[in-house]
Design a protein around this nucleic acid. Structure first.
Lengths: 337, 337
DNA sequence: TTGAAAGCGCTAACAG
DNA sequence: CTGTTAGCGCTTTCAA
């Protein structure tokens, strides 16, 4: 670079990085010249020496979920002022792809990784690779989901999925008089969904609601198949209320409702996961379980930054609270036994 | 690294990178050892030599717009097989922040930049900086928007915004008998919106529709203010149909409709920009202008890859076609003169 | 206060 | 086929 100034690179480095030991006048001159030449340091070169790339790797599990927009927003807001940059990846719920990206992240020297870890249908995940990464000194934060077996080893930020569904069930049963409940999930059954599932089962037991195996529906990417599966919800003998567990499922249910010419909440009541603006605007406005998504992102990024600043305490498992936002998609049933 | 094998690093490099000139047996041994040790190359070091970081910088203009999910999906799908990684940034429609990220991208040695360039209210943009970047040999692709003054210098992928609105106007006027039209925009008035605005004005002239300055509404982040502004749409003397120009605006209109206790399309007809699933599911399903967003992302990434592969032709300005998807949010008016 | 020298981990050119 | 050498652009001792 500005060896056009006929001085040693080390001096330039000191000047530009505001390190002590440069005559103010010279420093000014160097900075001016740098500006003039449009000089830009090479992080490649710098980080080779300093081991700091100032990048954080983020892995989404499914880039199509609007959940991630708010999440990324939270992460970016936190990272930007600290000058950390985001290397973005998506696993598409595929552990092989996840591993590929993790490897790439390591190759690129990310200083931390924020990830919603996926798993296979049979429950396999990349735990051993996460361990290896951690052993290499790269902090990892799980968000949205975590690996149960890794709770004591890794930081995580999740929401109270279990309690969220339990209180949704409680609301349906105790306050609104529903007795027959359904639940919709997707595969793979990652941590988050397992927790929600558990909350549903336990909630039903706690409050004496009835659920049928058939009313717990697992949707796939096959839309036709899904519509067929959803039919059961609208049968005379079907559930009177249904809970969804993510954005896409909610859309499917709404679509099915329309297709089968049913109305919410007249024909079926609905509690939707995620408080997207569409859910608020829908007719009728949907009762939702609102996750603090932005906060999730901010917390995940904050933990990483803390670790990079050398904070050294045992793994944190932060659990944020969700909130039941009551609108008009649940009908009040008379308690005719 | 595997100087644990007691051989020279250059040999290791050759072996691992499948370069010719290594005894198969030795190569195998090296690869095995690398696997065993969990060896991971350093791109920092490699790229210092090769000048290839295998990263592409992507700048979004507003991370909250679901438009970008599909876009990113398209980009990622194209980049992943080529092993290019995504460095993600968002300008939040702030040219200063945009410039900061551009600088960071250069520091990190991105090999290409894909950006929806923003501008100030008064129309200022980072053109001169884009020029400087290009002069440094980094290809830039504008997507969604472009800088008119830079069309001959830079690659771009946009949609036919002007024609899209013209045909929406045509549909409203010629097919559905509307005579009084409104339009909703946001600031800053970037290229895309200017084009849509132009399409609206020209369309109204072409098909003899009436529009009033008051019916062209520019929304801000102040929600209360927005609601006030939107009132005019629902006046007796107001427009009979309105066209929105992005996702968020559509939500505002739907919200306003609900708040003012009006119905679509009975009280006002609506054509919404972007064919999000929510718009399809809404009651009534909305007539929309559908952008090929995924394709936008794929095209942008494809151009960048082409440039990196050394393709050297004049700047391309790809224009993709949008499509008017007709549903039930526009009422057919009788042609009583 | 500045320069000289070494080295971060890798690859490429040249020898052997 | 393999090792030696040099150097990518920067930062960090150590000397001057």
């Amino acid at each position: 670079m500005a060896k056009a100034l006929n001085i040693d690179p080390s001096t330039v480095s000191r000047a530009l990085n505001d390190k002590p030991g440069v005559r103010p006048e010279l420093r000014r001159k160097i900075k001016e010249k740098a500006e003039e030449l449009g000089y830009i340091v090479s992080f490649q070169a710098r980080s080779l020496k300093t081991k700091k790339t100032m990048t954080i790797g983020i892995i989404l599990s499914d880039i199509k979920n609007p959940f991630f927009l708010d999440f990324l927003d939270g992460v970016e807001k936190t990272l930007f002022p600290r000058k950390y940059k985001i290397l973005l990846a998506t696993s598409n719920e595929n552990i092989q792809k996840e591993k590929t990206y993790l490897t790439w992240f390591m190759e690129h020297g990310v200083q931390g990784i924020i990830i919603a870890p996926t798993c296979t249908k049979s429950g396999k995940n990349n735990l051993s690779f996460f361990r290896q990464i951690k052993k290499n000194g790269i902090p990892i934060v799980f968000y949205d989901r975590k690996l149960e077996s890794g709770s004591l080893e890794f930081d995580s930020v999740t929401i109270n999925n279990y309690e969220a569904i339990v209180s949704a069930v409680k609301y349906l049963v105790v306050e609104m008089g529903h007795k027959k409940l359904g639940l919709c999930l997707t595969e793979p059954l990652v941590y988050t969904l397992r927790e929600r599932f558990r909350g549903f089962i336990d909630g039903c037991k706690m409050f004496n609601a009835k659920y049928d195996k058939k009313w717990i529906i697992t949707l796939t990417k096959d839309e036709k198949e899904n519509m067929k599966k959803l039919k059961v919800l609208f049968k005379e003998s079907g559930p009177t209320a249904v809970i969804t567990t993510n954005h896409l499922i909610t859309q499917y249910i709404l679509k099915a409702t329309r297709e089968f010419n049913k109305k919410i909440p007249k024909d079926i009541s609905l509690i939707a996961f995620d408080d997207n603006i569409e859910n608020q605007i829908y007719d009728p406005p949907l009762t939702t379980i609102k996750q603090p998504v932005l906060s999730l992102g901010k917390n995940a990024a904050t933990i990483i930054i803390g670790r990079l600043d050398g904070e050294d305490y045992p793994p944190q498992n932060i659990v944020l609270n969700s909130e039941l936002v009551i609108r008009n998609s649940v009908k009040k049933l008379k308690n005719k036994k």
